[in-house]
Computed example of a mutant assay.
Amino acid sequence: MNAENRYPVTASLFMLREIKHRQERVNRGYQLLKRKAEALRIKGRQAAAELAATQGVLGHTLREAYISLAAVKFTNGESNAMVLENIGEAQVRVQRISENISGVSTVSLQAIEDPTASDSLRYAGLGAGGHRTSEAKRAFREAVRILIKFASLRNTCILLDEAIKSTLRKVNGIEKVIMPKLHNTETYILMEMDEREREEFHRLKMVKAKKVRTQALTTCRQEMSALATIDEGAISDSQPFDDPFKQSIECLTAYLNPCHTALSSSRTESSGDYKPACLPHNWDDDDLLF
């Protein structure tokens, strides 16, 4: 397994439990981020729809306000200089209201009229065109309110768009980078632990086989010592004499090296190339440890 696609850890039960706990935490965070992104998308779509409606109303309101201003200019003449000279306190103020949308801090703007502010142009148009002047003032005041609402919605849409992009980057990073690395790390640890278990099982089998060979050698030596103590005169002359030392060596050689017996038997075959039959040592079920 490529080491770049996993974390550099040691294969142990402790690290396996740690990786599984980390996977659980990552999955929980991944689900929470997906829910957050979905909530931000819903709120962003609502804000975008409201922004589009407000933009349409703003265009109509500004058109009506400038038509009223043109009527005032037609009735009273040019009044820009008089307005600029009588600027006082603002009657419409903007209030910032902090909002929290699924963990994203946004600022909402709200228009508030200040009744204590003095209106220096409240008597404008008394001589002529007072009705047109009042209509123009109301139209532009309504336009200011809609502009503040439009600015608030546009700011909210921009912040939500940035938050959605950031959240989706986190979600994609967890899904495409972190989760595959954790999965590959868990697979690597399991493979290493299985390999160690197989090596340990093979080692125990070799130890068991060595013990069996040692026991067989001890048994053959005991038989050799027992046969050597037999009185040679007790053996009948009619029976052929068999060397006990030779029989014991042949027994031990056949048990410990079965290939030797197969090789000696194969040499009696027909002339030509021959292949010595070397059968593997077959353990019985009792010889296995597990």
Rank of each mutant, 00 (worst) to 15 (best):
R138W: 05
S108A: 12
A216C: 06
A226G: 00
M224S: 14
E192A: 05
Q222G: 07
Y123V: 02
T219G: 11
I178G: 09
T167M: 03
A216Y: 11
T218P: 07
L227D: 02
A228V: 01
L126I: 14
G130Y: 05
V177P: 05
R198H: 14
E200K: 00
V177M: 08
M206W: 00
T218H: 14
K205V: 00
T229V: 08
E195N: 14
G129F: 01
A124I: 06
T185A: 14
I158C: 05
R198P: 13
K210G: 01
F150D: 15
E192Q: 15
A143R: 09
T185D: 13
T214A: 11
K149G: 06
E192Y: 04
R122A: 11
R138Y: 07
K210E: 04
K170T: 12
E200F: 02
F140D: 02
E162D: 13
Y188D: 03
D161T: 12
R203G: 00
A117S: 01
H131S: 08
I230F: 02
M179E: 02
A216H: 10
K205S: 01
I230E: 07
T187S: 11
I148C: 06
L204I: 06
L168W: 11
R169V: 04
C220T: 12
D231H: 12
E197Q: 04
T214D: 15
L126F: 11
R145W: 05
L190V: 05
A136R: 15
L160F: 03
I112C: 01
L168F: 06
D114Q: 12
R169I: 03
L204A: 02
H183R: 12
I146S: 03
A226T: 01
T116G: 06
L121E: 11
T185G: 10
L126R: 13
G173N: 15
N172Y: 12
R196Y: 09
R145T: 04
I230A: 02
K205I: 01
